[in-house]
Design a protein around this nucleic acid. Structure first.
Length: 810
RNA sequence: GCCCGAGUGGCGGAACGGCAGACGCAGUGGACUCAAAAUCCACCGGGGGCAACCCCGUGCGAGUUCGAAUCUCGCCUCGGGCACCA
């Protein structure tokens, strides 16, 4: 009888829902397990690559549930964002309608996989019930000075007609559409994430159960540099130039200084100088270029200002240049240039014929250009003879004594730009009043809801700006006429706190009840793609810390354990709609069923690694499941009066060993080997059945029962049906995960390998508790190794009981 | 350029410093069948041998060790992250 997966799947998907098996509440008597998958953008159809992730999370939900945990597995939708809006531009369909249709579709596909969630906590960021609290959160940050608006040079995507956060610019292009990003000076809203830079960096150390590479990526992104900021007098001007350097120890080697083209002092330095026109042309050219164009030049270019800076340590006057290799956004936008110890300065000095002075002695035989390594200070007056660290310390102390400089720390991290000039996001709840400035929308007026518009096309400002009844309001403070802010928030604002909202998803009085959050947080297991290593994961950590500081969340870090799964690859590329290499699951559902798909997704390779799609793989796991089904549903034919046979203890032992392996493998996210262990067990049981002439003994029934329990989180439909049919109970999902019996797991006899000079020459079955003397005796008595011993001298015998003896001959 | 990973059969991959290739896919041969599908059985890294067996083999080259896919060093290749960040 073939396995009728279609009706079995439908039956159990209904049962899990009707019986509310995975709906949970706070229960202080049981350990909790908060299991969250990064909530998806509702893009509609799931392909095999997506199903891999959903299978992992669902397996964890079911596994931990069976282990007695109070498991919360919620699901929601990251449902604001550009795809719905771009679809609206093309079709005129309201983004809400489009989005909600996609959600319905995606939900049915999750159900079809057999993925279970506490759907009563479902949330979607595009709903006023949700984004009301986005806006509330914004106002909290605003009150604390953590949300602010400023004129800044920002990244602008000309295609999407909106600004982008630094984190959303990849290789100088828009992360979403790939268009080269431009720089524009615009008034924009920022979150002051830089206030948290040090804590975000320090607390990475607490995240022991995060992948190392994600922590490294975040640390690099935050980019702490310890250095020194000092000021230099501009000769002949009443001006001082502030520079930042990480190598203050090399200050005696400064032969010029450089300002970024956007530096505010530039104007005054060049005014009236012989070089004024040349400098203005250069600055204008630099402004026209994007950052990647600037970099693509390769050669470092610049222009002399005509002014000189006075090196505070030796009074030497050095020329001040303007060059676009110095960035306004980092440090002070001005540097001291030490070509002897910095390759970029070296390149520039060579091009413009500037002096090069070495201040750190390179090792003998050094033939490179700028020397960046360790060494002893030279040509540096009172620093001479010191190593780099000591020289840094001494020169910083010197600057501090003089009052012209100080040791400082710089971060690469910039404030998070959260304004977007688009429609489909949370409106920023601010009113701009000519008299009172930026006035928060009173909390009781939240949410600020999108008005419907007829034209979604981006025009450099949000389509909301075209709706007078939305824009024109009374100032809540003075009652005078005012305008609403029309920018919406970056969707990463939504995703930086949604996992808190799941804890109390329907609270209409507050963002959440801190007591409920205290029960569920932190997220015990967070699962998602590594592409979020610096975006979402950094923002979520930041917002959690802000809420922690407000006393609303007791934890300081949101995600105790992070798992970043590998991607599914086909034809040499990540499976994705845009690449056109997706494999749709439908034919596989129809031919092999959800459990076979799930099992293949688990089996395909290590969960952390990218895996290559194989068209025949699902059929393979289907064959395995079908074999299990046939084994479990054949005539039971229990031999009750049968004496225990030799193989009985062996198959029980196999089942218990598999149980230990499967348990440990799941705990370590080694799902592929867990599946392999179950396949091996099924093979063992099949061999046993054959040896018994097909009769199902009680021993078989027990071993089989264990196998069904182990398989339950992986292939839930089939195992639930077998469990019920075999009379074990009506709901496998709530059964306890079995415990292996150490007596059965223990091996009585093992294969001992006998090597001669490290090469295997014989294998002998021995008792597992054999002692070293006996092992050596047995080994040396082996007929197989006798020929090797002839005429040779035994130099040494290495014995590792009970598995190995190595006879070393001279 | 800097910082991480990873290189094992035809393929995906297994392997506490101790039997390389578990498990599966593909393939080959066989059983069942009028035939096919499904299922079941056997084989399945390369070379030699009738065989028992032997030799070679985990990207390349050294090293440590009784013993290395695994540890160390140096290369090569691929993937990822960062990148005029002073």
């Amino acid at each position: 009888m073939a396995y009728d997966f279609a009706s079995i799947e439908a039956k159990w998907q209904d049962r899990w829902e009707e019986d509310r098996v995975f709906n949970v509440t706070e229960d202080p008597t049981r350990p909790k397990f908060y299991n969250v998958q990064m909530y998806p953008y509702p893009s509609g159809d799931l392909h095999m690559g997506h199903l891999r992730n959903y299978t992992y999370v669902d397996l964890l939900t079911r596994f931990h549930r069976m282990r007695g945990k109070n498991v919360l597995a919620p699901m929601g939708w990251d449902s604001f964002g550009l795809p719905a809006e771009n679809a609206a531009i093309q079709t005129g369909v309201h983004p809400r309608e489009f989005t909600e249709r996609q959600i319905v579709r995606m939900k049915s596909q999750l159900r079809r996989l057999g993925a279970v969630y506490d759907w009563e906590r479902e949330l979607a960021s595009h709903t006023p019930e949700f984004y009301r609290w986005d806006q509330w959160l914004f106002l909290q940050l605003f009150e604390q000075g953590l949300a602010y608006k400023k004129l800044a040079s920002v990244n602008w995507c000309p295609k999407d007609q909106t600004v982008l956060a630094n984190e959303q610019v990849v290789d100088g292009a828009c992360e979403r559409c790939g268009t080269t990003v431009e720089k524009r000076d615009l008034e924009q809203w920022f979150f002051r994430i830089t206030d948290y830079a040090q804590r975000l960096l320090d607390d990475l150390a607490l995240l022991e159960d995060w992948p190392e590479r994600v922590r490294v990526m975040q640390a690099n992104w935050i980019g702490r540099s310890d250095g020194c900021q000092f000021r230099m007098h501009v000769a002949g001007h009443d001006l001082w130039l502030e520079v930042f350097t990480t190598r203050p120890d090399t200050v005696f080697g400064m032969t010029f200084a450089v300002l970024a083209p956007e530096h505010p002092l530039v104007d005054r330095l060049i005014a009236g100088s012989d070089h004024e026109q040349e400098a203005r042309d250069y600055i204008a050219a630099a402004r026209r270029q994007s950052e990647i164009e600037r970099m693509a030049e390769g050669e470092k270019t610049g222009v002399f200002t005509g002014a000189y800076a006075v090196n505070p340590v030796n009074g030497r006057e050095v020329p001040i240049f303007i060059a676009d290799y110095v960035l306004m956004g980092y440090g002070t936008g001005a540097i001291m240039a030490v070509p002897g110890q910095d390759q970029r300065d070296w390149d520039f000095a060579r091009r413009y014929g500037l002096d090069i002075i070495r201040t750190v002695s390179p090792p003998p035989g050094w033939e490179g250009e700028a020397y960046l390594g360790e060494g002893i200070a030279i040509n540096s007056d009172f620093l001479d003879g010191l190593d780099v660290a000591a020289a840094k310390k001494k020169i910083i102390a010197w600057f501090e004594e003089q009052g012209t400089g100080t040791g400082t720390v710089q971060y690469r991290l910039r404030d998070w730009l959260i304004s977007r000039q688009r429609y489909w996001g949370s409106p920023i709840p601010i009113i701009i009043c000519p008299t009172d400035g930026l006035v928060p929308v009173p909390v009781e007026q939240l949410p600020v809801v999108h008005p419907d518009v007829t034209d979604y096309a981006p025009r450099g400002e949000s389509p909301l700006a075209a709706v007078p009844e939305f824009v024109n309001v009374e100032c809540p403070s003075c009652g005078g006429p005012a305008r609403r802010e029309t920018d919406t928030m970056d969707t990463f604002v939504d995703s930086s706190w949604y996992f808190l909202r799941y804890c109390d998803a329907h609270n209409s009085e507050a963002i959440f009840d801190p007591a409920k959050v205290a029960y569920w947080m932190p997220v015990d297991q967070y699962v998602g793609g590594v592409e979020h290593a610096v975006l979402h994961l950094l923002y979520a950590r930041f917002i959690t810390k802000v809420l922690h500081d407000m006393g609303m969340v007791d934890v300081d870090e949101p995600f105790a354990r992070l798992f970043t799964q590998g991607m599914l690859v086909k034809d040499g590329a990540k499976m994705s709609k845009s690449r056109g290499n997706v494999v749709a699951p439908d034919p596989y559902y129809e031919r092999f069923g959800a459990d076979a798909i799930r099992l293949f997704e688990l089996f395909i390779g290590p969960a952390t690694d990218d895996a290559v799609w194989n068209d025949n793989g699902v059929e393979g796991t289907y064959r395995f499941l079908d074999r299990v089904w046939r084994m479990g549903t054949g005539e039971i034919g229990l031999i009750v009066d049968r004496a225990e046979a030799a193989g009985d203890r062996a198959i029980l032992a196999s089942a218990h060993r598999a149980l230990r392996k499967v348990t440990e493998d799941i705990e370590r996210f080694r799902f592929n080997t867990a599946v392999a262990a179950l396949m091996a067990l099924a093979n063992t049981l099949a061999d046993y059945l054959r040896s018994q002439g097909g009769a199902r003994t009680e021993t078989f029934a027990e071993a089989f029962r264990l196998m069904v329990l182990m398989l339950a989180p992986m292939a839930p439909h089939l195992t639930h049906e077998l469990w019920e049919r075999r009379g074990h109970g009506s709901m496998l999902a709530t059964e306890s995960w079995p415990q292996w019996d150490p007596d059965l797991v223990r091996q009585d006899s093992v294969t001992m390998v006998i090597q001669v000079n490290g090469r295997v020459r014989d294998r002998i079955e021995v008792a597992a508790d054999i002692d070293e003397v006996e092992a050596e005796m047995i080994a040396l008595a082996s007929a197989r190794i006798a020929p090797y011993l002839e005429g040779a001298t035994i130099r040494r015998v290495v014995v590792r009981v009970p598995t190995l003896v190595n006879v070393v001959l001279s």
